[in-house]
């Protein structure tokens, strides 16, 4: 079973967490075109490799946090708070 490092509770089993999908997706302004709006809603990088995503420790402290995780190996590369900009590398 994959284990994830909650910044507040430490390493816990994957089954305690809920994945919220990719992080750092910026909502476009009200004047966005259909193309920009569609891209914002639906289109994703979906990389095979490092991915920055949001997770919630739903069955623990309930807090959201950011994670950089490799989608092929499931290795966790870094953990950082929700409001922080993405770390370098990936």
């Amino acid at each position: 079973m994959m284990q994830l490092p909650c910044p507040w509770c430490g390493v816990r089993d994957e089954s305690e967490f809920v994945c919220g999908g990719a992080s750092h997706i910026v909502r476009p302004g009200l004047s966005a075109s259909d193309a920009e709006w569609g891209s914002y809603l639906f289109f994703r990088d979906n990389p095979k490799g490092p991915l920055r995503e949001r997770w919630r420790h739903a069955y623990g402290c309930g807090q959201w946090f950011n994670l950089m995780r490799d989608t092929l190996t499931h290795q966790v590369l870094s953990v950082y708070p929700m409001a922080e900009p993405p770390p370098a590398g990936g």
């Binding site: 079973m1 089993d13 089954s15 809920v18 994945c19 990719a22 989608t71 092929l72 499931h74």
Partner: peptide, 12 residues
């Protein structure tokens, strides 16, 4: 229910 390219799944 998380992005994955691994051809194996979680025990849970």
């Amino acid at each position: 229910l998380f992005a994955s390219y691994a051809q194996r799944g979680s025990f849970a």
